[in-house]
């Protein structure tokens, strides 16, 4: 963690992640440029500029698809979690690819337009009243604006300044943006193409986003139905040392119940930094350590050790018939709670 902002936080893992990603994008574009030409039919040959435009457009679509799949995949299977950690760089690169696509559109289709290019794009087709021949460009423009906003607000400063919930809400615009991209493709290219391969791959990609979200939703549903003022968690010895049990609270939030030797404490599962899953981290030197970027919080009060100032809410705990129970209501961030003392758990 840091107490100062830096332009970009990079570490070896992120370098690798970004390098692999950029290599994949380059490979995709190159392959598409080589294979894209024959896909056009004789009556309507696609020339270089159109193929380049489609290469970047489809690339941005597949990247966005991947971004939207990572979330539910990580909820369904923890092995996908590492992919989640650097999603912001993924998003920024996607925005760059999408902007490249739109630049090709403007410079090709409207290159000789007497009016300014942007104006020509917006004014070329205004049949908003009909579905067939609907100006699908509008969907693309909307998605592009959203991607630009998300990329431009991906720096840590924004998270801290807007607060994680507001930032997160802003970034949830990725959902409507994806729907808009799907509309952009189905009302545009898909109305016209004679290439069933693209239609099939496109449909499969978009439907898997829908399918994965449905699956993750059903999985979470069961956990949301538990209610009560005190919620049973587990027996102390069932939580492995310096690890946590994540509990879904009735209000939809999550708490992380940690065991550090014979001490048990609970904090909100959402890290103060980027709402990372604290409960998937471990206790290091008596501090709960976030698995995402390593922010630390003391077990007994949810405060970061000085000089840091971050705080997370804590929860009251009690022991009932040998089972840990957690209070349904969270305490204010940084409220001290004496950890439960369970000497027997540490001997197991």
């Amino acid at each position: 963690m840091s107490d100062r902002y830096v332009p970009v936080q990079w570490n070896p893992n992120k370098w690798l992640y970004d390098a692999v990603l950029i290599a994949c994008v380059a490979a995709y574009i190159l392959i598409y440029l080589n294979l894209g030409n024959p896909a056009a039919d004789v009556t309507r040959p696609a020339d270089g500029a159109i193929v380049r435009m489609r290469a970047f457009g489809t690339c941005a679509f597949f990247m966005l698809t991947a971004i939207l799949c990572i979330g539910p995949l990580a909820r369904l299977d923890r092995r996908f979690l590492p992919l989640l950690y650097n999603r912001r760089h993924f998003g920024v690169i996607t925005a760059v690819v999408a902007v490249t696509h739109s630049t090709y559109v403007l410079n090709w289709y409207f290159a000789f337009s007497p009016t300014p290019r942007l104006e020509a794009l917006l004014g070329a087709n205004t049949s908003y009243g009909q579905l067939l021949g609907f100006p699908f460009e509008a969907f693309g423009v909307f998605a592009l604006i959203v991607l630009a906003i998300l990329a431009a607000t991906s720096h840590d400063f924004w998270l801290n300044f807007l607060t994680p919930p507001v930032w997160k809400r802003l970034h949830l615009m990725i959902y409507p943006a994806y729907a808009a991209v799907v509309a952009h493709v189905v009302l545009g290219y898909l109305q016209d193409t004679k290439n069933p391969a693209f239609a099939l791959v496109f449909g499969a990609a978009a439907l898997s986003v829908a399918g994965l979200h449905l699956a993750a939703h059903l999985k979470d549903g069961a956990a949301r139905r538990a209610k009560g003022a005190w919620i049973p968690v587990a027996r102390p010895q069932d939580i492995s040392d310096s690890r946590a049990r994540i509990v879904k609270m009735p209000d939809g939030r999550r708490a992380a119940v940690f065991r550090d030797g014979a001490r048990i404490g609970a904090v909100s599962n959402a890290c103060a930094h980027q709402n990372g899953p604290l409960g998937e981290g471990r206790v290091i030197d008596g501090c709960i350590t976030c698995p995402w970027h390593g922010f630390q919080y003391r077990l007994e009060d949810g405060c970061s050790p000085p000089p840091f100032t971050e705080k997370v809410p804590t929860y009251d705990l009690r022991l009932q018939d040998g089972v840990i129970e957690i209070a349904a209501e969270a305490n204010a961030p940084g409220t001290p709670v004496t950890p439960l003392d369970v000497p027997e758990a540490s001997d197991v």
């Binding site: 939207l68 539910p72 579905l131 607060t163 994680p164 919930p165 997160k168 809400r169 949830l172 959902y175 409507p176 994806y178 729907a179 799907v182 509309a183 189905v186 009302l187 898909l190 109305q191 449909g203 978009a206 439907l207 986003v209 829908a210 979200h213 449905l214 993750a216 939703h217 979470d220 939809g252 939030r253 909100s268 959402a270 103060a272 709402n275 705080k311 997370v312 809410p313 969270a330 204010a332 961030p333």
Partner: peptide, 30 residues
């Protein structure tokens, strides 16, 4: 300060569900 720890879980869930509905409708419609 308390608000900082209220991730918009419900909104996210609804948005996700919206997408689940929108994608097949858009594709079938088109």
């Amino acid at each position: 300060l308390q608000n900082r720890h209220r991730p918009p879980l419900t909104t996210q869930r609804l948005m996700g569900l919206g997408l689940v509905l929108a994608i097949p409708v858009l594709i079938a419609g088109a």
